[in-house]
Simulated scan of single mutants.
Amino acid sequence: MADLKPKVRRRVDKQAILEAAFELFAEEGEAGFSIRKLAGSVGVDPMTVLHHFRSKEELLRAIADHAVRGVEVPVATESWQNDLKAVADTFRSLAHRYPRIFHLHFRYHATGPADHVASEIVYCAMRRAGLSDERAAGLGLAFYAFVLGFALAEAEGLLRPISESDEAELNALDADVYKSTRALVPALKALDPDLAFSASMDAFIAGVAKFTKRPTKPANKPQAGAAPS
């Protein structure tokens, strides 16, 4: 005789669903991810997932924030320059660790609580550098655009020494028209992503320093008729 007992759905809390979603997305990427597939993996109805996360977009944002929780977020120090470098290193590590998830960080102004911890360090650093709030906001976003872009390009394989086929293509270019491009071929063959990232961060920080609002202290001038000290 067939079993006529009704099937009992599992009770799964929001955190368990998020962790399962994170693992599925990290393994399959966005192309292989769906609410239905996630629900099947945890043994619940798709509507249960949407009960906890009102939309797929909200779930994806939570997945991105969960990724930030998986790496060590730095704490603020007395050096605004070192703080920017530390946050940059954090997001670069994030791209290395979760390459299929990382692109989600381009999709949202902030992914949530964990992301806000990092951005507070960045904005504090910008203000402690002496920037106006207007410039701190703009350069803070520029910082993320640069760091996320570099890290994603590296995760996608762009920031690597060029291959033999790349080298052959560059060397086939007209030597008079592409003089500098061809001159850089040896350097591109020996490209070190770590050194490129470090140099890029130094250049960004040097640029931020030029926008300080702190006035330069004028040298003390002797009063008229007074002998120089």
Rank of each mutant, 00 (worst) to 15 (best):
F22W: 03
A199R: 15
E28C: 07
P218Q: 09
L94Y: 01
D89H: 05
K189L: 08
F211W: 13
G207L: 12
E120Q: 11
L60D: 02
P6H: 06
I121T: 04
A88S: 14
A151K: 00
P193Q: 03
G29L: 07
S79I: 11
D83I: 04
W80R: 05
T48I: 10
N220E: 13
A153T: 01
S198P: 00
P218R: 10
A31R: 15
E169M: 11
S198M: 03
A227Q: 12
G43N: 09
R97Y: 03
L191A: 12
E30V: 12
R97W: 05
V117L: 13
A219P: 05
E58W: 10
M1F: 10
P99Q: 10
A145T: 15
Q15L: 14
K37C: 05
T216E: 15
S132I: 11
G207R: 09
D83K: 03
A187C: 06
N171D: 05
G130D: 08
I162W: 02
T90R: 02
E78R: 14
S180I: 12
L173K: 00
D176N: 07
A199Q: 14
D176T: 08
A76T: 11
F25T: 05
D176W: 00
V71N: 03
G32D: 11
V71G: 02
V177Q: 06
G40R: 14
P193I: 05
A67K: 00
E28T: 12
D3P: 03
R182W: 03
C124G: 14
A62L: 06
E19D: 15
R100S: 10
Y178A: 01
R128S: 10
A118L: 08
V122M: 08
D115I: 00
A151D: 01
F25E: 01
K217L: 11
F204K: 02
A206T: 12
V122G: 02
K14S: 14
R9A: 14
P218T: 06
R214L: 14
L158R: 11
F53D: 04
L188M: 12
G157Q: 09
K14G: 09
A137E: 11
A20H: 05
E23T: 14
R69D: 08
Q15T: 15
K179A: 12
L94A: 05
A86I: 04
T90W: 04
R69C: 02
V208G: 01
A86Q: 04
R128A: 09
A118E: 02
F150W: 08
M126C: 08
A26G: 06
P193D: 01
D115P: 01
L195W: 06
F204P: 02
K179F: 08
V8I: 14
N171F: 00
V87K: 00
T216D: 13
L173P: 00
L158C: 08
